[in-house]
Amino acid sequence: MTDIKSLPGSQGPLIYRQSIWTRITHWLWVICLFFLLLTGLQIFNAHPALYLGQESGFEYDNSILRIGAFNTDAGPRGRITLFGQTFDTTGVLGVSGPKERPVFTAFPGALTIPGYRDLATGRVVHFFFAWVFVGTMLVWFVASLVNGHLRRDVVPRPADLKALPSDIAAHARFRLKHGRSYGPLQKLSYFVVFFVLFPLIVLTGLTMSPGVNASAPWMLDLFGGRQTARTIHFIVMLLLVAFFVVHVLMVIAAGPINELRSMITGWYRASPGTPTGEGDKP
């Protein structure tokens, strides 16, 4: 079943796919999210539990997740308690590092900045990159609104939703089409990241600020309390990590050189059969 796509020497047009704004904001976000994730886990390690509500229950239990270390006859064990179910996570969560000199942090030092307990530095770096992250969001939004990226590539149209089932089927069979614009699944996932996950993680982060709480108490009500906001912040982090993993896997599956080139130079080799347009190169 050889079709034209797999014939050597045949290729589609080279198209200018990513504007300078898309490329700059993309790599700024890469840097921001890297530091935000690793300093965020540092901050989480200072109190490795998540709750629902306004406050943290010490004399009652409103926690949904706890990570901790416990000494047993067989040595220290790391444990995670999730919705009342406890799992042994020794070596990864709670207790990690060499057996003779174990480290008792929730997330291991390899996943935090700095690589040891330092809440103060974690916070300083987290808030620096939070500012850069939000600034990048604003630049991206304005530029993408003006240059049409938003309308063309991000906001799904009715036709995209109609084509969704066949696009899912194509992805399941690793048949990836490299067109001028994004496919339905791509559009939908970027839309969710830009218009659901990014705003959510910023707003839940701000809801943890006692200063912001004073001027915008509605945010406490919107998220169901400061501790719930903290929990949502953590969950959105997990979703962004999941997006990152799938995103990188898709880049690899779709041809990492071509994909990376488009996000560095803007130029992208489309699939054979893609209609050529003005400004394309052969």
């Binding site: 890297f34 690793l38 291991p108 390899a110 935090t112 700095p114 330092d118």
Partner: peptide
């Protein structure tokens, strides 16, 4: 994927400790 994944695991470490 395996190559990319192992790169990620090494990402943390201590090279940013100077920020403290």
């Amino acid at each position: 994927s395996v190559v990319a994944g192992s790169g990620l695991v090494l990402a943390g470490c201590d090279q940013f400790n100077f920020l403290a």
